[in-house]
Amino acid sequence: MSAYANLLLVMLMAVDLYMVSTTRLDACIRACIIQAMILATLPFVLGGIHPDMAFSEQMHFVILAGATQIVKGVVIPWLLFRALRTLSSNREFEPFMSLHYSQLINCALCGVGFWGAAVLPWPVEHPHPLALGVALSTLLIGLYMAINRKKAISQILGYLVIESGLFVAGWALLKQPSSLMELGVLLDLLVAAMVMGILATRMDAAADDARDGNGGGDE
């Protein structure tokens, strides 16, 4: 089973790197959808679902996977596309750091992520080689996306990547689903994304342009 896990984790890393290097917002949102799909299948592979588990537990996995897929893969991208339609332009003009440097920085962040996973005292007995590293790298990349991008929408995307990083870290550390925790996280993610969407659109309505998350001088 772990072979598939490595494959999925590597795909997740690939999606992260793709998201950073694209300037088109709709492409980014589609990448998010792919990421959601990966995250939905990951528990089955990583979590150690095995046939002799009680039926209710297996159902547990299925419900969580379904919920993740619906929330992260369908509802939030729909919200973002709706917000994108109201905003005038589709392209993120000039992030603070040019794309080339962003990519270099992302590689560095992946390095830092894996270094962190290896060195820091994580409470896990037999850690999966890749899981924690990928989780931390995704987290750092998401944080970098939020810092580097000016448009409100791309900052929401950064936040989503952070959430997915956390999701993977959760699974890597806890190894089995805890209903209350996951549901709570998903619910919050949903509401947060909704509110951000509303704010982004209102910012556009109130502001002359949504070009920068909050550029311009203070009044």
Partner: peptide
């Protein structure tokens, strides 16, 4: 304090990294 959310996010990241490096430097946690 120049009212840029990116700057503040950078501060959070910097604080976290600084703390982790500081404790690692002091001979692990």
């Amino acid at each position: 304090q120049r009212s840029r959310v990116q700057l503040y996010l950078a501060y959070i990241l910097a604080t976290l990294v600084l703390l982790l490096v500081w404790f690692m430097a002091r001979g692990g946690f």
